[in-house]
Simulated scan of single mutants.
Amino acid sequence: MSDPFKIAVVGVGLVGRRHVDAIQSLQNVSLTAVVDQTPEGETYAAKIGAPYFSDLSQMLQTVSPNGVILATPTPLHIEQGLTCVAYGCPLLVEKPIAVDAASALKLVHAAEVSDVPLLVGHHRRHNPLIAAAKQAIDANKIGEIRGIQGSCWFYKPDGYFDVAPWRKKKGAGPISVNLVHDIDLMRYLAGEIIQVHAYAQPSLRGFDNEDVAAAVMTFQNGAIATISVSDSIVSPWSWELTSGEYPIYPTTQESSYLIGGSHGSISIPDLRLWSHEEGQRDWWTPISATSLMTAASDPLVNQIAHFVKVARKEASPLVSGWEGLKTLQVIEAIQKSCTSGVSVTIAEPTSMQSEIALAPKISDISQKILQK
């Protein structure tokens, strides 16, 4: 048996603590350190008996972990990610990978040229429900995808915003905070999105951000998707309330995604596969559903187990830095379309040559960081 894989968690808010719980549930994986700049973080580290650091570089020098999970606020991801790359330490960055795609490109490019594994925490891809849907789609069970409908509707109570006033600010609305998950799954299941046209309405509660938005998206394969998101709609139709993924949310028997193809359709996450009898594709013949079966497991635990394999060069990343960047590009396009009122075309990240040229050389990053 190999030595335990040592993981340090940077940022131990709600998400960071879920990562700690997931690490502690895995065999041959250990929590080697907690990095957090808050008194609450230091208290939490003492409570669970983990070495505590307030500085990322100091931790990397002292502990030399096999991997780092960045569960810090998004504006910190790039600087902290580049620090991990400079030390040659594999990293898993919580979603979204960065505040904007141009910044994300700097980290993705640096990790790539330095051959440092970089994963992005779109953990829903690691859910067995999504794995089963992906397998059915790839096996041509529904034929060529033509249309997608997605709902991301729920009601966040006033207290959710009162305890963290930044959630009321521009840029912290449900497009960036919630829809990013759903967009990533649509890309994963249906392919690349090349154009969007979106709309948003101001918050009814008087916040600086939107509380409802909708987008029409065109895929490279010709499919068209419609999706809407709101944190001010009382509804059973969201991933949180339909997947049973996280116990703090009550579960319903509804679905949040419908994916339609030329030979059938699938609803997710209930995994009902709809089709006519063989050779009888017409709306006058009966249509029936078959429920796909899959075992349940915690996607966060699955994600960390996968992270270990990728860091050890035993597997390719399911959600690479490039994947996180492409999903962020779609979110940016939706936000831009909401503001401008026009359709936005999404460029290939590899075509962003000017941004790549401006990306810092990893040797310069290393020298700057290691001289601190």
Results as ranks from 00 to 15, higher is better:
179 L>Q: 10
179 L>A: 09
181 H>R: 09
181 H>N: 11
182 D>F: 09
183 I>K: 03
184 D>I: 07
192 E>R: 15
192 E>N: 12
193 I>K: 02
194 I>H: 02
197 H>N: 10
197 H>R: 14
198 A>S: 15
199 Y>F: 09
200 A>C: 11
201 Q>V: 11
202 P>T: 11
203 S>C: 13
204 L>F: 03
206 G>H: 04
209 N>D: 14
209 N>V: 13
210 E>R: 05
214 A>M: 11
214 A>K: 10
215 A>N: 06
216 V>Y: 09
218 T>A: 01
219 F>M: 06
220 Q>L: 10
222 G>R: 07
224 I>K: 12
227 I>P: 06
230 S>H: 08
232 S>H: 02
232 S>G: 00
232 S>C: 01
232 S>Q: 06
235 S>A: 04
235 S>V: 04
236 P>G: 04
236 P>Y: 10
236 P>M: 01
236 P>R: 06
237 W>M: 08
237 W>T: 14
237 W>L: 13
240 E>H: 03
241 L>D: 01
242 T>Q: 00
242 T>V: 10
243 S>P: 06
243 S>W: 05
245 E>G: 00
245 E>A: 05
249 Y>I: 08
249 Y>R: 03
250 P>A: 13
250 P>Y: 07
250 P>H: 14
252 T>N: 07
253 Q>Y: 02
254 E>C: 06
255 S>D: 07
255 S>V: 01
255 S>A: 07
257 Y>M: 15
257 Y>N: 04
257 Y>F: 15
257 Y>Q: 05
259 I>N: 09
260 G>W: 02
262 S>N: 00
262 S>P: 04
264 G>T: 11
264 G>W: 02
265 S>N: 13
266 I>S: 03
269 P>A: 06
269 P>T: 04
271 L>P: 02
272 R>T: 13
272 R>Y: 12
273 L>I: 05
275 S>T: 11
277 E>R: 10
279 G>F: 09
280 Q>R: 15
281 R>Y: 13
283 W>L: 15
285 T>Y: 03
287 I>S: 07
288 S>Y: 13
288 S>T: 14
289 A>C: 11
290 T>I: 15
290 T>A: 08
291 S>E: 13
291 S>P: 03
293 M>G: 02
293 M>Q: 14
296 A>G: 02
297 S>P: 05
300 L>Q: 11
302 N>D: 13
302 N>E: 15
303 Q>S: 11
306 H>W: 07
306 H>Q: 03
307 F>L: 10
312 R>P: 04
